[in-house]
Design a protein around this nucleic acid. Structure first.
Lengths: 226, 226
DNA sequence: ACCTGAACACCGTTCAAGT
DNA sequence: ACCTGAACACCGTTCAAGT
């Protein structure tokens, strides 16, 4: 939990913030702990950032900025969307808790807006209404963010379960799984049995969802074109 | 902020919790305020719920329970999915902060699992792999939750913006909008100009996104069938 | 069985005061 | 310009003690 003595500059505070997020996660992140990491007192941080929220906003914007830069614009629009979304995801993986940060942040920051703009450009030539273009991109972006958010939450629960008495909560889970109320076949249990739950958050699952959304957008364009 | 004198039972605590969430939102929700509302001391709550997290888990499960009950199972699978997703959304609208609650909650609660199961049943007969079924439903459910989450966040920012000096932050926003870095046409600005931002979170937008995802799933099934 | 008072170990943030 | 000490108004949670 120590860091080399550094000048207390905005970039260095941000660097330390990323490290702290990586170490303890966003729910335990505090201005006091960040100050400790930088060997200063907590109130000092408020000279550089007017609030914790504004610090988070800055972090989120950094993710948006890097995501936008990694976009390449060649090939069919489907490829472009796929590539862009994958890039956004890989940038998000690089930065700890980036999904939570983006979620809590309003896309009023310039780089976030620019990212949305470049996504909108990709679908701008499609023969659908502006409203539909907007919905499509919102859907895609939501998907990418929610996917990483889920993965994070999943991990958090997994570790919490392991901590709790070996097989205690795990047993509870298997129990509710076994006797699902509501008629019909127990599809969830079959999938759990086949180890599908371990695939949660995998690259493969990400790509499948992405394909679904892009194919759906294509379908929308095709219908409108008729 | 008062409530009639009530017996302190688990259901009444839950009722008060919903009211408090409605009044002040999830980020300001505290066990102490909940206790105030019930005219008891904060530690008393810990006799009924072992933690704030477990209280939230219970609330989330209530949403899942009601959502599951409102599912009807007739018509084509596309209609069923559409209807189910719409129902889940309308239940979520009924309960304040339900998106946040579901997001923070692991789907290990029985009713949440049952909800996922009934969604999986709808696509179970499609000619795709279990993994793809799983991805499809995860994608759909993520969409519904993230949609409401975004709407909530959007509202929070809007009110924050209005509070901040008339047109101060608003001006900032227009500014970043006007001079977006990165080449290409400014699609975002055009859309903002056409009032599309006011459509954020609308029924119309919800349905469009839903159609995209369902059409995408259909596409997946069609490809695999060949 | 159910509730309280007092306490612990934390928060974010402000502000006068220091250098 | 940049940092600190002290303080304010909060948190979630525990626990001995009350009824």
């Amino acid at each position: 939990m120590r860091i080399k003595n550094l000048q207390i500059t905005e970039p260095n505070i941000i660097k330390a913030a990323w490290e702290l997020l990586d170490q303890i996660g966003i729910e335990d992140f505090s201005m006091r702990k960040l100050a400790d990491l930088l060997h200063i007192q907590a109130p000092s941080l408020y000279w550089h950032f007017k609030s914790k929220q504004s610090l988070f906003q800055t972090l989120a914007n950094e993710v948006a900025k890097e995501a936008r830069q990694s976009a390449k614009l060649e090939g069919e629009w489907e490829e472009q969307l796929f590539h862009c979304a994958s890039m956004i995801r890989s940038v998000m993986i690089k930065y700890p808790c980036s999904a939570q940060l983006l979620m809590r942040t309003v896309p009023s920051e310039p780089d976030y807006l620019a990212l949305i703009n470049s996504l909108l450009q990709i679908v701008d030539h499609l023969p659908v209404s502006d409203s539909d273009k907007f919905s499509s991109i919102a859907c895609l972006l939501n998907y990418v963010i929610a996917f990483e958010l889920d993965k994070y939450e999943q991990r958090r629960v997994d570790t919490a379960m392991k901590k709790e008495a070996e097989g205690g909560a795990q047993g509870m889970f298997m129990d509710s799984l076994a006797r699902l109320s509501g008629g019909g076949p127990n599809v969830v249990q079959r999938m759990h049995h086949n180890g599908l739950f371990r695939e949660l958050g995998s690259d493969n699952m990400f790509r499948t969802g992405l394909k679904i959304i892009i194919a759906g957008i294509a379908q929308l364009a095709q219908q409108q074109a008729r």
